[in-house]
Amino acid sequence: MTKPSRGLNTPENDRLKLILRVAKSLHRAARSDSRPHSLPVLRRLIASETFRHISLPELYRQRMTIQRKHILHMLALEAGHLNWSDYKKKVETQPEAQPLDYSLALKHAGYPNIWFTSLPEAERYAAAQGGQPIAVGKQAVVIPFQERAC
Score class of each variant (00 low, 15 high):
R43G: 09
P112I: 06
M74L: 09
L72N: 06
P36Y: 12
R31F: 02
K89F: 12
T65M: 05
Q146L: 15
R124G: 08
P40S: 12
K89Q: 14
R15K: 15
D14W: 09
S25F: 00
E49H: 15
R44F: 01
P11S: 12
A30D: 11
S25R: 14
H27C: 08
L18C: 05
F145E: 15
I134N: 02
L8A: 15
S34P: 03
A79D: 13
L39M: 00
E12Q: 15
R35H: 07
I19A: 08
E96V: 13
E123P: 03
T65G: 01
C150I: 07
P57A: 04
V91T: 07
A30I: 10
S38M: 06
K138L: 11
Y60H: 13
D101T: 14
I71P: 02
L45A: 08
Y111R: 10
R35N: 10
E121I: 02
S38A: 15
G137P: 05
V91S: 08
R63W: 00
S103H: 02
T93H: 06
L8P: 13
V142I: 12
A47L: 10
G137C: 10
R35K: 15
A122D: 00
S38Q: 00
A23V: 00
Q129M: 11
T50S: 00
I143Y: 11
L45C: 02
E147H: 11
E58G: 03
N83Q: 09
T10N: 12
M1H: 13
K88A: 12
N13I: 04
Q98Y: 07
P36E: 13
T65C: 02
T93Q: 09
H108Y: 13
R21I: 06
Q62T: 05
E123S: 07
H108S: 11
Y111S: 13
R63Q: 02
I19H: 01
N83H: 03
R63A: 03
P4C: 09
P133D: 05
L42N: 10
A47C: 07
V91N: 05
S5P: 10
C150L: 10
S32L: 07
P57R: 05
H81S: 03
A105S: 12
T65V: 02
L56T: 09
S34F: 09
H81A: 03
I134S: 00
A140S: 08
P144T: 09
V91C: 04
Q129C: 08
T10R: 12
I114L: 11
Y102W: 15
T93K: 08
L119Y: 04
K17F: 06
R124W: 06
I71Q: 04
G137L: 05
A105L: 13
A135T: 04
L106D: 07
P99K: 00
P57V: 09
A30P: 11
K90V: 12
P4F: 13
L119A: 02
I46A: 10
K69R: 14
M1P: 10
E58Q: 05
L75N: 06
P4M: 06
G7C: 12
M1W: 12
D33K: 15
R43A: 10
L100M: 14
A122E: 02
A127P: 01
G110Y: 01
Q139N: 14
P112M: 02
F51S: 05
W115K: 01
